[in-house]
Computed example of a mutant assay.
Amino acid sequence: MAEIEDLQETYPGAGTFQFGDSAETSAALIDLVRNSNKRATCAPLRDFKDDPDSMPVVGRIDIVADWDGHPTFVVKTVRVDEVRFCDVTENMAKADGFKDLLAWRKSTKASISRGGNHDPAMPMLFEFFSLVEDLDGRQIEEKS
C-alpha cells in the first residue's frame, strides 16, 4: 500500500501489524491507544513460530495499520516480556488497555481460543511500546 511505503521512507525498516482479530476489535484498540489507555499488546508465543521475524524486538519501529490496512500510528517497542498466561500481572493487563486482570484474562482467553487451544501455562509475548507518531490527520502522499 502506498501509504505504508511512504511511511517506510520516514521510518526505514519499520514493520507493520494490526491490533485485534476483527474490524471492531481493531478499531476499539486503536481508540485505546489514541486515549493513552493502551501501551502494550500481547500474543501467544506460538503465533510467531511460522514467522520469527515478526517477533517484537526492543527498539524496533512498527507501523500499526487499521483493519483495512491504513496506517494509524508509528510505535517503538520499549520492552518485551515472555510470561505464562497465568502469570500476567494486573499492571500488564492495564498496559494492554484493560480495566483489570480479570477482564484481560476473559477477553484474551476468548481471543486465543478462536485461534487455537488455550492453556493457562501457555507462553505469551508481551510487547510494551511508546507512541512515536499518531498519523490521524497526517497527509500521506499517494504515489502513482
Rank of each mutant, 00 (worst) to 15 (best):
D6N: 13
G115D: 10
F85R: 03
S26D: 02
V88Y: 06
Q8L: 02
L101H: 09
V57W: 05
M124W: 02
G13T: 00
S113C: 01
D50R: 07
V83H: 00
I30A: 11
D53M: 04
D66R: 01
D136M: 10
F129K: 01
T10Q: 13
N117Q: 15
M1L: 10
Q18I: 12
E142D: 11
M122L: 09
C86G: 00
D87V: 05
I63Q: 05
S130D: 15
V33H: 00
A40L: 04
G20P: 14
E127H: 00
F19H: 05
D66S: 02
V74T: 12
D21R: 09
D96H: 12
A23K: 06
G59M: 10
F126V: 14
I30D: 14
F128K: 12
Q8P: 09
A110F: 13
E127D: 14
G115H: 15
F19E: 01
Y11L: 06
L29Q: 02
G69T: 10
P56R: 05
Y11P: 13
V57T: 11
A28T: 10
F73G: 00
H70L: 11
D47S: 15
H118R: 01
T108D: 05
T77Q: 09
E142L: 03
V83F: 04
S36R: 12
N91I: 07
E127Y: 04
R84P: 03
V88W: 03
V75M: 03
K38Q: 13
R60H: 12
A28Y: 08
K76I: 12
L7Q: 03
I4P: 00
T10Y: 08
V74C: 04
G115S: 11
E9V: 11
T25A: 04
D31T: 12
S22K: 09
G15P: 08
Q139D: 09
P71I: 01
D50K: 13
K49Y: 07
V83T: 13
S26A: 12
A14V: 07
N117K: 15
A27R: 07
L101P: 02
T108L: 00
I63M: 10
A23S: 04
L45K: 14
T89Y: 06
D136V: 05
T10E: 14
D119Q: 15
R60T: 08
T10L: 13
I63R: 06
P52Q: 08
C42Y: 02
T77S: 13
L102V: 03
S111R: 03
E133N: 13
T72C: 15
E5S: 07
G69Q: 08
D119S: 15
S107F: 05
G69H: 10
S54A: 12
